[in-house]
Amino acid sequence: MFRYALQLKKTLLSALLFLAIAVGCDVAAPFVAKTLIDRHILGVDGYWVKTDERKGAAFFEGDYYRKVRDPEGKGMEEGAATLLQIGKSFYFVPDLIPPEAKKQVKDGRLVVQAEGTEKTYPAEKLTAKEMMGFYRPEFPAIALFILGYFALFALSGLFHFGEYYFLQKTANRIIQRMRNEAFEKIQTLPISYFDSSPAGKIVARITNDTEAIRTLYVTVLSNFVNGFITLSGIYAAMFFLDKKLAAMFLAVIPVVFLWMILYRKFASRYNRAIRSKNSEINAMLNESIQGMAIIQAFNREKRQEEEFEKLNDAHFRYRNNCCRSIPCLPTT
C-alpha cells in the first residue's frame, strides 16, 4: 500500500499541504475573533490620553483622546483619563484608575477601593452618542478583523475542497493500480487455487477490500492529520493563554492514546471477522446466482435461505459486538 502511495507522493503531499493550510485557517479564526473582541470591542475600556492628532482619536468635550495600548509607556502622566464600564453604563474619569481596584459609583462620583484605601474621583456618565465617539477610532480595525475572519473561513473551504480533491484523486489512482495488478495476478494462479477458493471471496478481495483503501486515504488519513494539527493548535493556544491550565490538560494525551490502543485491541478482531463474513456472503451470493437453476431443480431454496440467514446473522452480531466493544468510538 505504501509503495503505491510513494508512486503518487506529489499528489498526496499536495493534499496534505492543502489540509494543513485549511486546518491552520480553522485554528486561526478563533484567535482573530478573540483579538477583535478583546482589543477592539471590549478594549475600549482602559486608559486614554489627550493628543493633538485627530486621526485615530476620539473627540470628547473639546479634546481629542487616543487609546493607550501600553499603560507603562510614555505620555501617561499628562492628560491621562480612564474609561470604565460599571454595570451597563460607561464612565469617563479624568485620572488613572487601577484596573484591579474595586469600583462603584455613588452620587455621581467614582469610589475606588484598593490596598486598604478608599478614594473618590469625578466620573461622568457617557451617553450612547459619546460612547460611539470612543468606538469610532476602532471601526477600521473592527472592519478589517471581520473581513479577515470571513476570509479565513473562505480560504478554509477552498483548501478543504482542494485537499478532498487530491485525496480522492490519489485514492482512485491507487485503487485502479491495485485492481489491475490483482487481476493480472489472478490470471497467473493455478487452477487448484480456484478449486479451493469461492469466486465470491476473490471478487470481494478485489472490489470491497480495495475500496477500503479509499476510506483509508480520504477519511482516516484526513481525520488523523486534521486532528493532529487541530490538537497542536489548541495546545499552542492554551500555552499562550494559560501555561498551568495547558500543562494540566497534557495529562489527557496518554489517556487518549491508551483509549486508542484498547479500541484497536478489541475492535480489530471483530473487523477481521466482519470482512471474513462479508467475503463469505459475497461468495454464497455469487454461487447461488450462478447455480440457481440447479438449486431450484433440487428444491434447495429453503436450505440456501437458512445458510444465508446464518451468515447474515453472524455478520450482524460481529458488527454489534464491534460497536459495543468501545461505544464512544466508531467502527471502521
Rank of each mutant, 00 (worst) to 15 (best):
Met1Ile: 13
Met1Cys: 12
Arg3Phe: 09
Ala5Leu: 15
Ala5Met: 13
Lys10Phe: 09
Thr11Ala: 08
Ile21Asp: 04
Cys25Ser: 09
Leu36Arg: 01
Gly46Trp: 00
Tyr47Ile: 10
Ala57His: 02
Phe60Ala: 03
Gly62Asn: 05
Arg66Met: 08
Gly75His: 08
Glu77Met: 15
Glu77Thr: 14
Gly79Gln: 12
Gly87His: 06
Gly87Ile: 05
Lys88Glu: 06
Lys88Val: 04
Pro98Cys: 11
Glu100Ile: 08
Ala101Ser: 10
Gln104Asp: 12
Gly108Asn: 11
Gln113Ile: 07
Ala114Phe: 12
Glu115Val: 02
Glu118Lys: 13
Pro122Asn: 15
Glu124Ala: 14
Lys129Trp: 04
Glu130Thr: 04
Phe134Ala: 04
Arg136Ile: 07
Ala141Asp: 04
Ala141Lys: 09
Leu144Ser: 15
Phe145Gln: 01
Ala151Asp: 03
Ala154Glu: 01
Leu155Ala: 06
Phe166Ser: 00
Gln168Arg: 06
Gln168Asp: 02
Thr170Met: 04
Ile174His: 00
Met178Leu: 15
Ile186Arg: 13
Gln187Tyr: 08
Thr188Phe: 02
Pro190Leu: 08
Pro190Gln: 10
Phe194Thr: 13
Pro198Glu: 11
Ala199Gln: 03
Gly200Pro: 05
Ile202Arg: 01
Glu211Cys: 05
Ile213Val: 15
Ile213Glu: 06
Arg214Ser: 13
Tyr217Cys: 05
Val225Leu: 15
Phe228Val: 14
Leu231Asp: 00
Ser232Ala: 15
Leu241Ser: 08
Met248Leu: 15
Val252Ala: 15
Trp259Lys: 10
Met260Trp: 04
Met260Phe: 06
Tyr263Arg: 07
Asn271Glu: 08
Asn271His: 06
Ala273Gly: 07
Ile274Lys: 03
Asn278Gln: 11
Ser279Asn: 10
Asn282Met: 07
Ala283Ser: 15
Leu285Val: 03
Glu287Pro: 00
Ser288His: 03
Ser288Met: 05
Gln290Lys: 13
Ile294Pro: 00
Asn299His: 15
Glu301Ala: 09
Ala314Val: 02
Ala314Asn: 05
Arg319Tyr: 09
Cys322Trp: 01
Cys322Ser: 12
Cys322Ile: 03
Leu329Thr: 02
Leu329Asp: 00
Thr332Ile: 08
